[in-house]
Design a protein around this nucleic acid. Structure first.
Lengths: 245, 245
DNA sequence: CGCCAATTTGACGAACTTCAAGGGTTGTGG
DNA sequence: CCACAACCCTTGAAGTTCGTCAAATTGGCG
């Protein structure tokens, strides 16, 4: 079993840390089974297979996606450091979609039997883990809205605004600029567009001096217009919200 | 407090019943605080407000939605009898979207303090409730796929196939025909389309002898083609899946 | 009947995809 | 260090899908 020290507290600000007491945090950390490094494109979960462990993302980017019959891909979630990944797999046992590392990643791993012991003993921690999965569900809902009701420009603006807010919340983005290691085609897969059209929209946003996207490095020039175009309101991220009891 | 008998066991097949022991089921039923009947268009939850209770839908249809700046609506979930509604509101405390009854509904209500007592005492029931919310999340993910990667015909076919499978699972749909009390505009709001285009697609599906949609009464003439057009695979509904431990 | 909401149809335009080709960047092996 | 390949980004032209606007028709209900 890994020691608590293996989760680097200096660099990692966990998404739900604000909700954990020091004791809860220590208990969670102490129960980590393993720290793993995985290469780019590594598949963490394949649809339909039994999931035996859940992870916390420490470094890198992980995505979840569903492919259609012709191989066109739809991302349904994107995880950044500090996110619990796959906690869904614990109660569900099997997932109906694939989970893949976009670049090289470092993760903390909890075996499900460990989680089962933990949730059997600690109702408070169970509610926190539950809460973490519900944050994902809230993001899912906004993604439905994004692809269902926004045009291409709005979808991209909303996506970038979301990732900016989430990375800021864990200390990985400054005010104007941050790393988002995705290809344009990944952005297209996230927004329900083609890579060709994404490219055109990015050019337009650049020419309007709203934002610049260059090989995974994003610079927001005009956050106000970006949020307006994307109709972005960060409330659904629950970043400064009340915690569960 | 309501008695267990108030939840009509003859007519209601709950979505997660297969996963509950008789004792668990009785415990849940016994802790119901109230049974309520609500009129059509009643708002169960408004975005941003404190949620104090969660419900199980006994009769009727409930939807969740997010409106854009111009009032265009995107449904992000649709609940049928047997679904827990709003369980998300228990750990989250506030929701970021609205929840509304589409027609008149009957619901069982648990106050959050009741749920808190229950989840404090019964890790097994907590995991079941958690599981129920993760079924919602899995549906959310498929809705992202649906609006992100399918054309209008595919979206509608997928939506109808999903509702058919879910209503069948709780005994509310036969093989070919079932009630789905939505207007065409609700279907449009669910699929990220306009009501005009939905109308055209429904006509096309009717003319192809695939399905008929008439004022909330759906008849599926060719389930095989319907599923193929919608690329529908019911695995994500977890209808006969393993239950959490 | 007469009213109101929902559905239906047509014409037109905008948004996005598809297909095709060229240019840039990065990594790799000689 | 250069050459080459693979991948990604960029741009153009043409076609399809879907939205918008407007109007007619249907159906339920007092």
């Amino acid at each position: 079993m890994a020691t608590a020290g293996q989760i680097d507290h200096v660099r990692l600000k966990r998404r739900i840390d604000q909700c954990l007491t020091p004791e809860q945090r220590a208990t969670l950390d102490a129960s980590v089974d393993q720290i793993r490094e995985l290469p780019a494109r590594h598949m963490l979960v394949r649809a339909g297979e039994l999931v035996m462990a859940s992870t916390l993302l420490l470094e890198g980017t992980i995505c979840r996606y569903i492919d259609d019959r012709n191989g066109a891909r739809q991302l349904v979630a994107l995880h950044v450091p500090g996110d619990f990944v796959d906690l869904h797999g614990y109660p569900l046992k099997r997932l109906e979609h694939d989970v893949m590392a976009l670049g090289p990643v470092r993760v903390a791993v909890w075996q499900h039997e460990t989680l089962h012991r933990l949730t059997g003993e600690r109702p408070d921690l169970t509610r926190m883990l539950w809460y973490a999965t519900l944050l994902d569900a809230a993001m899912h809902r906004m993604w439905i809205f994004r692809v269902g009701r926004l045009g291409a420009e709005g979808r991209i603006a909303h996506f970038v605004a979301e990732l900016h807010a989430r990375l800021q919340a864990v200390g990985l983005a400054g005010d104007g600029s941050f790393a988002l290691p995705l290809k344009q085609i990944d952005l297209a897969d996230a927004c329900g567009l083609t890579n060709v059209h994404v490219n055109r929209v990015l050019r337009s946003l650049r020419e309007q001096d709203i934002m610049t996207w260059r090989s995974g490095e994003v610079t927001i020039h005009d956050p106000v217009r970006l949020r307006r175009i994307g109709e972005f309101d960060p409330a659904y991220l629950y970043i400064d919200a009340d915690c569960p009891d």
